[in-house]
Design a protein around this nucleic acid. Structure first.
Lengths: 352, 352
DNA sequence: CTGAAAGCGCTTACAG
DNA sequence: CTGAAAGCGCTTACAG
């Protein structure tokens, strides 16, 4: 391994000068700088960041803790974070905890030992009460939903309002009996989206029907299973709001298998706005989160804070947008109004 | 920040003893060890891995370089790698290069400066000629396809044989005119899969028809566009082999929009075996790669090598499996043979 | 502009 | 079993 000593000797200067010539913060004669750089290149010198960071500088590394990288929502989020991290010269460490709190806690400890500069934490289903001490001293940005980490900033959409937006759209199409496939139990985001569905129904004078609430798991499998459960209640509902897009995809597959036509017999609307939602059959109407932007914003907030800036707020909320495609239409029996999209995809509205 | 010095002072021992008591490699009296550990816990001492690694030990960190995390193939791969890294106490650094060679090269340089112990590189569309020097001295495992990195091990499936397997299945169903939607140009894997398609046709005495080769991009969008191109040649083919599953999903959406029924009018078969392929409409027949296992195997090979083991071979090939679902059937006009699956999914065969 | 020295927080021979 | 010392590869005041 080539070190500053090797470069110094060969260039005939001290290691201090090598350091200065390479990092050029302070005054070094142009001639010296040139010489040192030439020698460094010649020797293939690569600075050891371990030593550099040890001297007291940052590691230029941030970490992203994810509950489930398999949901296409997350890769898109990763890209948003990665983009900003790259631009600003930081490396991204990725930790996947599969909703296992102990794993997340272990990761956090390891990250602190490695001296990462900061962390972006997607809370998912994690209880999160024990994060406060695990993250002590670590700048953190939380995503998706709040978690009891002091000093942390939250970046998210308003899940409840988004769910309400979805349900209101179905109501506007004329639906009155609207089922809901939930996310996993005990996950705050599941509860928030369900609450939004209830809000919209109640605001329309409809009491949410427990029998039309079917459990899901945020994955295709849960949506598929929910489709079988719902099929038994055929005729008792004309639309379904699913807790996320993956659930809707499973539901669509299930309905297809059982000969339930979407949207002629039943309308389906999802949540998330993953890219794939434009390619289901029928294409999926959904409440889109600005996924990439959420990732970018979280990374910016974290890096700004590392650069000494005060966070603009404790909570940064981005807007959802209703993306209207082919899986929704008027309830069966209604006159075929001009609600059908003319183009492949139409973004109806966006809200704060 | 609490250091060994703080612990040493409080426990009334030297820093050497603190180090030994905490890492307990060598002889420390049980009593001393207890005391030191107690004090360390009391003070909330967390070792600084930067210093530890600087002394000469490894960083216990490996990196995974990916071309495109948006393709569901990769998250599954990440999980495989992550699982093994976790088990063996390593942290996983994730770098996304979007098929940009310069970015990949910069990442490699950064990773070396950070002293990562080793790297898993998914070559994707990267030319790869310049990797050799960028990775000099870094243990590397390459995935997907070979790249000119000396000493590296390759973990992959046989793409060409897998593609042949897909095409042979269509031939067995009675198809003679089989179209192909390719992957991106100049990407070796695209060429390999296309070659497998040609192999199968030629072996059946059919000359591959250039007009039935349509360009794709490994994404839904390319598949969708290809569907429009193919629709103009309707009647000239009865089946399509797409370069990957995402392409097939886009193609299915396009055919659906144009009223081409799958599999009644045209059969479609994909490649990869992403989870989603079980939830398209119709469900997708595909050549499945053992994605999770590929990731695991790559990580194992890398970590074994870091532990001083010789790699078992330069190339480790895992088997693909033909997964038969609803998107394939006999060509139109053929008697409806008993080729239709009875269960939702059937795995027909697997090969080396 | 440049060099000698100290120090970042650890681990590991080397003595005892 | 335990301590004093050296050293990992750098950066940064401090002098000059």
């Amino acid at each position: 391994m080539v070190t500053v000593y090797d470069v110094a000797k060969r260039a005939g200067v001290s290691i201090a000068t090598v350091s200065r010539a390479l990092n050029d913060r302070s005054r070094v004669s142009p001639e010296t700088r040139r010489r040192v750089r030439e020698v460094a290149a010649e020797l293939g010198y690569q600075p050891n960041d371990l030593a550099r960071s040890l001297v007291g500088k940052a590691t230029q590394t941030i970490a992203l803790l994810l509950p489930d990288i398999t949901n296409p929502f997350f890769p898109e989020l990763v890209k948003g974070v990665q983009t900003v991290a790259d631009e600003r010269g930081h490396l991204l460490l990725l930790c996947h905890n599969a909703d296992d709190e102990d794993k997340a806690l272990r990761d956090l400890a390891m990250l602190r030992r490695k001296q990462v500069d900061g962390v972006i934490l997607v809370a998912g289903a994690l209880p999160g009460e024990r994060f406060a001490e695990a993250a002590a001293g670590l700048p953190v940005v939380v995503m998706d939903r709040a978690v009891a980490v002091p000093q942390s900033t939250l970046v998210a959409v308003d899940h409840r309002a988004g769910a309400r937006q979805a349900t209101e759209y179905l109501l506007r199409l004329g639906h009155r009996a609207i089922a809901h496939v939930t996310g996993p139990e005990h996950v705050p985001v599941s509860a928030q989206r369900r609450a939004g569905w209830e809000d919209a129904l109640r605001a329309a004078g409809i009491e949410p029907d427990e029998r039309l609430v079917v459990p899901g798991d945020f994955q295709e499998d849960g949506g598929f299973a929910a489709g079988r459960v719902l099929a038994r209640q055929r005729g008792r509902f004309t639309a379904v709001f699913t807790a996320n897009d993956l659930t809707a995809i499973g539901l669509l597959a299930s309905f297809q298998e059982q000969g339930i036509r979407v949207p002629q017999d039943v309308s389906v609307i999802g949540f998330d706005g993953i890219h794939l939602a434009a390619y289901t059959s029928p294409t999926l109407t959904t409440v889109a989160q600005p996924i990439f932007a959420l990732g970018q914003r979280a990374a910016e907030l974290l890096l700004d804070r590392l650069a000494g800036q005060e966070p603009p707020a404790d909570v940064v909320t981005l807007d959802t947008a209703l993306v209207i495609r082919d899986s929704t239409g008027p309830p069966p029996g209604d006159p075929p109004a001009a609600t059908h999209p003319t183009s492949r995809t139409r973004v109806e509205e966006s809200r704060a």
